[in-house]
Amino acid sequence: MHIFANPVRFLQLARPLTGWCGWIGAVLVVAGLGAGLFLTPPDYLQGETVRIMYLHVPSAWLGMAGWGGIAVASIMELVWRHPLAGIAARAVALPGAVFTGICLATGSIWGRPTWGTWWEWDGRLTSMLVLLFVYIAYIALAEAEADRGGQGRIAAIFGIVGVVNLPIIHFSVLWWRTLHQGESIGITGSSIAGSILWPLPVALVGFTLLFVSIVLMRMRAMLARQKVEARLRRMGTEP
């Protein structure tokens, strides 16, 4: 873990990984979504709209996993004071918010032809919308803190506290009655027929790799900006 705390070592690893994750992820996404659009059969009840699943499930996973990542990085930042952990947490925030937004939008488009409504305030939909707002609040907070030269500690605490929303999202369909259906994929197996299911893991892995690549790009951008600022400061003090 401490190996990654060193920005030089991190960059040696991050530079090749950015490209590899990005391109492999893109190929898998195109393959998974292509298969989901053209190769799989429609659902017996929902018809063609079931194809929205190949977007909706990966984006829901990334929205939630993103906040999980922010929480882990925030703990590392608070406990070990790794500056790189704070950068990682802030780099995840925007992609996490975007994928949460994609999840909400695709879910809304899916809901209209199946349930008969664009939006309902049930437990799952509402808790996912809260996640989007929590992301936006985190981004604003982290920006404000960085602008004032803070250490990122307030954002880190917010990152840890915000994790309470993840079990709410997960258990909402299990414990509360919701319009959203229950879990299709659990530890014990899946209630989705194999011929419909198979492109989903492909798209899921692809989107995840793409997400990692985007986070690495944002971390590299932040590190480079920090380097520029530090150098300019030094040049300013010793002319």
């Binding site: 659009l37 063609e48 929205i52 209209r112």
Partner: peptide, 15 residues
């Protein structure tokens, strides 16, 4: 299909 296409275009453009 219009719903499916709208979802794919939206997600593709955003990503």
């Amino acid at each position: 299909w219009p719903f499916v296409i709208a979802a794919y275009v939206l997600a593709g453009v955003a990503t």
